[in-house]
């Protein structure tokens, strides 16, 4: 009976197991191996030890540039997005008519945000002939194409990311709805104002959700590819040359797959470290209601 049940269980999850071994675990091991080789798809991989990693840190300025661009992007895009998401979620968390209507409109950009279509739109709006540029011209800032200017190109991508705060907002909204009303009532009795309530009730009660959104946001932004690839192609002068873009160019542009694999593993390690830091620091600011069983 027991064996039979085991068999049934494994039969049901077999699609996952096949996918896990063939498309996740095996590729991961192989990628690690490639990162210590010279490999170009058509020739067999040649073991070169830590050469790829050495090259990255000692003689590859583009590696540092793309890493810097990506860090800048993450540092600005993630907090901006979360702040918008939280503020709007609080506005929407009211017992009033029409809330679901507003929610739909505000969420709308998020469902189309990742598409090529929006990249086309963005490229036009912020381009040299775009309406933002013409709008700035009214104030005497003639001929500014925000996408084609190295100083501002990255901020248009940050803005595009921030425009799509919908998913984070809905997660916040669900979190806000779970905060017991009594807490607000009690703090009102104690004479707390709106700002005080926000810092003493809302923020602590919502902190696990904030952590969740923060971790997801960092992981996702770090892998940002499509928008940079389509809107700016990494330019001008590499000002939006995201790490994932560099990795793609190395792997599938010049077929340096060994080097690209090393880049991928560095990315994995950076994301891992960021997540660990997040969890460690979270002990100091995330509040768990029932002694941390969540």
């Amino acid at each position: 009976m027991k064996t039979r049940q085991n068999l049934t269980g494994y039969l049901f999850i077999s699609p996952f197991l096949i996918g896990f071994f063939l498309l996740t675990l095996f590729p991961m091991m192989q990628s690690l191996y490639f990162s210590f080789t010279d490999y170009s798809l058509l020739q067999p991989a040649q073991w070169v030890g830590t050469k790829n990693y050495m090259r990255m840190f000692t003689s590859d300025p583009t590696f540092k540039t793309s890493l810097g661009v990506t860090f800048t992007y993450v540092i600005f895009a993630v907090p901006l997005k979360l702040m918008f998401a939280l503020l709007v979620a609080m506005l929407l968390n009211k017992n009033m008519k029409g809330m679901s209507f507003y929610r739909t409109l505000i969420y709308f950009p998020s469902i189309i945000g990742g598409s090529i279509a929006v990249a086309v739109l963005w490229k036009n709006i912020f381009g040299i002939d775009g309406f933002i540029s013409k709008f700035l011209a009214i104030f005497g800032m003639e001929g500014i194409g925000l996408v084609s200017n190295p100083d501002t190109a990255l901020s248009t991508l940050v803005l595009l990311q921030a425009w799509q705060f919908g998913s984070a907002m809905i997660i916040f909204l669900a979190g806000l709805k779970q905060i017991p009303k009594e807490l607000y009532e009690a703090s009102s009795v104690d004479g707390a104002g709106m700002i005080r309530k926000f810092f003493s009730v809302t923020l602590p009660m919502l902190s696990p959700v904030i952590l969740f959104n923060l971790i997801l946001g960092i992981i996702n932004s770090f892998q940002m590819f499509t928008q940079a690839y389509v809107i700016t192609k990494g330019g001008p002068v590499k000002s939006t040359y995201m790490y994932a873009l560099y990795l793609y160019d190395k792997a599938f542009g010049s077929f340096q797959m060994g080097y690209a694999s090393a880049l991928a593993w560095v990315m994995l390690i950076i994301i891992g470290i960021a997540t660990i830091i997040n969890f460690t620091v979270s002990k100091y600011w995330v509040f768990y209601e029932s002694g941390g069983d969540k």
Partner: peptide, 11 residues
Amino acid sequence: MIPSQVLIIPQ
């Protein structure tokens, strides 16, 4: 949690 970039080359 695994970034797709790690898997994409071997895949």
